[in-house]
């Protein structure tokens, strides 16, 4: 509890620093990057004793339950997916927005308070082998919705059940398929006889 306030202050100062220091006041890139490196390193320590995740969804669940609870002190309110690499995480009382009064003027300022988290989630996923793009959407303070879009070229191969097969040279693959086919064939013969 007492350490939360320290982090809240540090977060506010980081936001302040990043925006004052860049030429463009709306440039959230640095802020996102600071989040990215933090997430990348943190997840490595968190998952040290956790078993390997079997697929993308399980990884995503870990991020939205354990990871989120540790950092934002509450579970996400909703996690949805379209099963094609698009995940929507909803938090109805997002930690960095709860101290801001709801209003249209404040709403304009909201992006700077969620950019760090976008980076944090992207960094964590990246270290777990998922290449993604994370964007956030704030409609009313303090609710916030994160869209995680998994980039399906490259890293996802680690999670495919056929990963090993797909990575092998073509002729080995054919051989394997043939063997499977042969097995099926002999089994059929066994059955018929």
């Amino acid at each position: 509890m007492s350490e939360e306030i320290v982090f809240d202050c540090l977060h506010a100062e980081i936001v302040n620093y990043c925006l004052n220091n860049s030429k463009d006041q709306n440039d959230l890139g640095t802020l996102e990057y600071i989040g990215f490196t933090t997430g990348y390193r943190l997840i490595e320590r968190l998952t040290r004793d956790v078993g390997r995740f079997k697929d993308e969804l399980e990884t995503m669940k870990f991020i939205c339950t354990d990871f989120w609870t540790l950092i934002y002190k509450k579970q996400v309110d909703n996690l949805r997916t379209n099963n094609y690499g698009m995940y929507v995480v909803q938090d109805k009382a997002f930690r960095f927005l709860t101290r801001i009064s709801p209003g249209s003027k404040q709403l304009e300022q909201a992006p700077k308070f969620v950019a760090f988290t976008c980076g944090l989630v992207r960094g964590a996923l990246s270290n777990l082998g998922i290449n993604s793009t994370v964007t956030a959407e704030v409609q009313t303070i303090p609710a916030c919705r994160f869209h995680i879009e998994v980039n399906r070229d490259g890293h996802h191969i680690l999670f495919s059940p056929f990963a090993k097969l797909a990575q092998r040279p073509l002729f080995v693959r054919q051989l394997r398929l043939q063997r499977i086919w042969i097995c099926v064939y002999t089994q059929c013969r066994l059955w018929t006889y």
């Binding site: 350490e3 982090f7 540090l10 980081i14 620093y17 989040g35 933090t38 968190l46 354990d66 609870t69």
Partner: peptide
């Protein structure tokens, strides 16, 4: 899932999170 959560010590994670974020900030400043 709850079993996993209990294995992660919230207090320790908090301080590590702070440390790592601060580190990221210092590197960015450099």
């Amino acid at each position: 899932m709850s079993r996993q959560a209990s294995r992660l010590d919230a207090k320790k994670v908090n301080s590590e999170f702070l440390t790592l974020t601060y580190g990221a900030l210092v590197t960015q400043m450099l």
